[in-house]
């Protein structure tokens, strides 16, 4: 839905309309926990070490922080304790 006229323009500086919201001054909150993935509101693009980019358009994305995921950079619950 387009912004209504009463709302301030999203990108007053003339940033490209596809720029992430954070660039317009609205900080995106990322949820971190000592144990478990980092939660980021989607859609998300992730640039990996080799320069390749993967993307997810899920409403919320769980990024692996334990580095054990077999679907890295996405969480696959490999951080869980094993017993």
């Amino acid at each position: 839905m387009p912004n209504s006229p009463s709302e301030p323009a999203r990108h007053p500086s003339g940033a490209p309309s596809g720029a992430p919201e954070a660039a317009s001054g609205e900080a995106r909150r990322v949820v971190v926990r000592r144990k478990g993935p980092m939660l980021v509101e989607g859609p998300v693009e992730v640039e990996l070490e080799d320069g390749s980019v993967v993307s997810s358009d899920r409403f919320q994305v769980a990024l692996c922080t334990c580095r054990r995921s077999r679907r890295y950079p996405w969480c696959d619950t490999s951080h869980r304790d094993r017993a």
Binding site: L39, R58, V61, R71, W74, C75, D76, T77
Partner: peptide, 14 residues
């Protein structure tokens, strides 16, 4: 479901 439910788990619990 591997990927989707790893996210859903976090959202449902939190």
């Amino acid at each position: 479901h591997v990927e989707a439910d790893a996210v859903h788990e976090q959202v449902v619990r939190k």
